[in-house]
């Protein structure tokens, strides 16, 4: 038994030691393409008496295309995977991809119906990470669902409709939940922002830190990373004396990432206002040193009020030796264009 075999979590894993799908929840998530391995547990939630299946009346429609383009990410993979929103009746070019995925701007308490169109050449599934929604649209192929109504992988050329009502304002990621290490690292990640009112983009800033290509060697952390889709991200422009919200989405699958807002001599102070889409209670929404470590799938929102014009930088680097990407932050005087 022990000759020439590996544990399924091993770098030699080819999926052959994993059970095959098709046996319902007893083997759920066990597809050879399913990379949720190891530290994962399943929960069956039985409906309470009187349960009524969710409906999404008068939902706003979003058409989210999953696509690939031949352009290469940092590691030289054959294709970049990603998302693009269809606006209007005309589909965007089949090789158009936004990196990171387009921000899904949702309204708290307003139903939304997201049609995911898989234009990849392989199956996928999209997970709305952190949203308190029904299981079926949650997007874990072979697992999400109730009873026999189980969310399947979305085959190439097929669409899936995820309908839900986001109950809470906050910052969340969305990402592939099939063949995750490859698909997420190849670009299938983005941010969801649920708001009570339209965001003031001059004072509300989003950073999405994710992968820039699958790892060079199986199992070893990918050394490739992008901030807002770039190795040299565009500077944030803030106004002195005004409060700015900085939303951080940490969705690189392989790394715990350290964020530090500083200039050459000083680490700034900021107010932590939300974590993982949930506002901090007042006792925790306090000013603190502008440094935070975040693992895969975490989000955090901070308020920063620079007092004087100048240059700052958000240092974004792996908590252990790996990579470093600085994000310039330019603070200008009020009224400066």
């Amino acid at each position: 038994m022990n000759d020439e075999v590996s544990l399924s979590g091993s770098p030699h894993d080819s999926g052959t030691t994993a059970p095959q799908p098709g046996a319902g929840h007893a083997a759920a998530g066990a597809s050879s393409e399913h990379h949720m391995r190891g530290l994962v547990m399943g929960i069956h939630v039985r409906p309470a008496p009187g349960y009524v299946a969710y409906d999404a009346p008068n939902a706003r429609d979003i058409k989210l295309l999953v696509q690939q383009k031949p352009g290469r990410l940092l590691n030289g993979t054959a294709a970049t995977y990603g998302f693009v929103i269809q606006k209007g009746d005309s589909a965007p070019a089949r090789d158009s991809v936004d990196l990171p995925g387009p921000v899904l701007e949702l309204e708290r308490g307003k139903p939304v119906r997201i049609t995911v169109v898989n234009n990849l050449q392989e199956p996928t599934g999209i997970h709305w990470h952190g949203l308190e929604i029904e299981s079926f649209p949650d997007g874990v192929p072979g697992w999400s669902g109730l009873g026999d109504h189980v969310f399947p992988p979305i085959p190439p050329g097929v669409s899936f409709v995820a309908a839900f009502t986001p109950p809470r304002s906050g910052t969340y990621p969305y990402h592939s939940h099939l063949n995750e290490r490859h698909q997420i690292q190849s670009g299938m990640y983005g941010a969801i922002i649920v708001s009570d009112k339209p965001r003031d983009l001059a004072h509300d800033h989003l950073l999405v830190v994710g992968g820039g290509g699958p790892p060079v060697i199986h199992k070893i952390e990918s050394p490739y990373a992008l901030v807002n889709g770039r190795r040299s991200p565009q500077a944030l422009r803030l106004t002195a004396g005004e409060v700015h919200r900085i939303r951080i989405v940490s969705i690189h699958p392989d790394w715990r990432i350290s964020f530090t807002l500083r200039n050459d001599s000083t680490v700034a102070r900021w107010r932590a206002v939300a974590k993982d889409g949930y506002d901090f209670p007042p006792a925790q929404a306090i000013m603190r040193s502008a440094n935070v470590d975040m693992g895969p799938g975490e989000t955090a929102d901070f308020e920063f009020r620079p007092t004087t014009p100048g240059e700052w930088r958000l240092e974004i680097k792996t908590a252990e030796p790996g990579w470093y990407i600085p994000l310039p932050i330019i603070v200008v005087r009020p009224g400066t264009t």
């Binding site: 979590g9 091993s10 190891g38 994962v40 547990m41 399943g42 929960i43 069956h44 939630v45």
Partner: peptide, 22 residues
């Protein structure tokens, strides 16, 4: 490359315990 497996209560997914909640 190394071999490894991470487990919860002695088993790796999909062999981990299934919780049944209401």
């Amino acid at each position: 490359p190394f071999e490894d497996q991470m487990v919860i209560n002695g088993k790796a997914f999909p062999y981990t315990e299934r919780l049944e909640l209401q």
